[in-house]
Design a protein around this nucleic acid. Structure first.
Length: 241
DNA sequence: ACCATTTGACCTTA
DNA sequence: TAAGGTCAAATGGT
């Protein structure tokens, strides 16, 4: 199953966010550390096997959608410093999200994923994506996240040329969602062309990534293609049968 | 009542 | 000083 190696090791779909100055490795106590931030594109931003608590949402300049900020649910009781940001990139069917992770998980769930070859750990992971014992309580959180994502996935259609219409769509957007569409800050033709250019840029970027992946034999119809963690689970399951 | 999300205020950084 | 990131009180769902 070559797709797993491609996505997990070579970062075809997930690539380091920082490329210039921040990409320089820092040296602490004589040890070298890689950047603790990485990102990936996915239509299912919540399906990464971890539990997250949202702590903020922000309109980022030059983007259509708000950025959502999450930290690990176990930050307080287990001191896990993992965080992630979710930024919706387009309104395709399904929409694509960029998920940027910072800091590795130090909570129990991380150990389960790292021990994916352990059949017991794998069973726990696949039986319940939260990586816990099975119980109704654990399930409700994950289910809620998925429902939340589904709501975000079906936003109003792509921005029309008429800016007044954009504002109307924004007002009708439901309250509970991950990334909501945001109206332009001013109304003139340069704003429209700016968004058009930005849209083209993202389309081009996605196309480049997809072509690169296809060249390496990735099956784009496979939903697990987008998430390295899910790919690992998928691969281990394939090995089991 | 408890807990996660929302959201404007506040803080940090370039 | 403005944009991005985080805090925390208010809000809403169960």
């Amino acid at each position: 199953f070559p797709a797993a190696d491609v996505a997990a090791d070579n970062h075809v779909v997930g690539k380091p966010r920082r490329s210039s100055s921040a990409a320089k490795r820092r040296r602490i106590n004589g040890e070298e550390y890689k950047s603790s931030s990485w990102s990936q594109f996915t239509p299912v931003p919540h399906e990464d096997g971890f539990q997250w608590r949202k702590y903020g949402e922000k309109k980022i300049q030059g983007t259509h959608f708000t950025r959502s900020y999450f930290r690990c649910t176990y930050r307080n009781d287990r001191g896990c410093q993992a965080t992630k940001q979710i930024q919706q990139k387009d309104n395709n069917d399904p929409p694509m999200f960029q998920v940027t992770y910072s800091n590795e998980h130090t909570c129990t769930t991380t150990r389960l994923i790292n021990n994916i070859n352990n059949p017991a750990a794998l069973h726990n992971l696949t039986a319940n994506p939260n990586g816990h014992h099975d119980s109704d309580d654990d399930d409700t959180i994950f289910t809620k996240m998925i429902k939340q994502e589904e709501q975000a996935a079906w936003l109003p259609p792509p921005p029309p040329a008429d800016l007044a219409t954009i504002s109307n769509n924004f007002d009708e957007t439901p309250g509970l969602h991950v990334c909501q569409e945001v109206p332009p800050s001013s109304s003139n033709s340069s704003v429209i062309s700016h968004y058009a250019d930005e849209f083209d840029h993202h389309q081009m970027l996605e196309t480049t990534v997809m072509e690169e992946a296809l060249g390496l034999g990735v099956d784009l119809d496979d939903p697990y293609f987008y998430d390295p963690n899910l790919l690992l689970i998928y691969e281990s399951l394939m090995n089991c049968y």
